[in-house]
């Protein structure tokens, strides 16, 4: 368990940052790669690592950071949505609806897509929870965060090896 502390700490931090609107808009796609780099840095400091990192360690740390960030992020967002009964989707729904209304597609397709969004937005507004939305969000976040985590882990290995191990 102790070996997971760096990725747990970095993943939790990233998960929290991902739902803070201000932090999100400033750093967007840099949150997860930075968290993976942070996890590697924590590992290096906590174990007083004598030798440089192997890229496979970067991949593993990045992947785990991404997964934990996704799990923490979606859990926190679900709890916040349960309490506030609103989220990004609900807030951007009128704008999305407006965009879809002016979209040059046939009426049936448009109404089906708007209907899908409306159902989810309505569930969130009334119950604070939409199972389909939460599931889709979890799957999307797991995939996207894992990929960005791996990228961050690999770049993190290169940066840390350059800085602390003479570029080995």
């Amino acid at each position: 368990m102790k070996r997971l502390y760096p990725v747990l700490i970095a993943g939790f931090s990233a998960g929290v940052f991902e739902i803070v609107p201000m932090a999100k808009s400033l750093s967007c796609c840099l949150i997860i790669p930075t968290a993976a780099l942070f996890a590697l840095y924590l590992e290096m400091k906590s174990t007083n690592r004598p030798e440089p990192f192997d890229i496979s360690i970067g991949v593993r740390f990045g992947l785990l950071t991404g997964i934990f960030a996704a799990l923490f992020g979606v859990t926190i967002e679900t709890i916040v949505t349960l309490i506030t009964k609103t989220n990004d989707l609900v807030e951007s729904f009128p704008q999305m609806q407006q965009m879809l209304e002016t979209f040059p597609v046939d009426k049936m397709t448009r109404s089906e897509v708007v209907g899908m969004l409306k159902t989810v937005a309505e569930q969130i507004r009334t119950a604070g929870f939409a199972p389909l939305y939460t599931f889709a969000l979890l799957v999307n976040t797991l995939i996207v965060n894992s990929i960005f985590g791996i990228i961050g882990g690999m770049i993190g290995v290169k940066l840390l090896n350059n800085k602390y191990y003479g570029g080995k």
Binding site: L89, L137, N140, V144
Partner: peptide, 12 residues
């Protein structure tokens, strides 16, 4: 509707 929140994960 699926892609918009997905891309929102990496962009404001």
């Amino acid at each position: 509707p699926v892609l918009k929140p997905t891309y929102h994960l990496v962009c404001h």
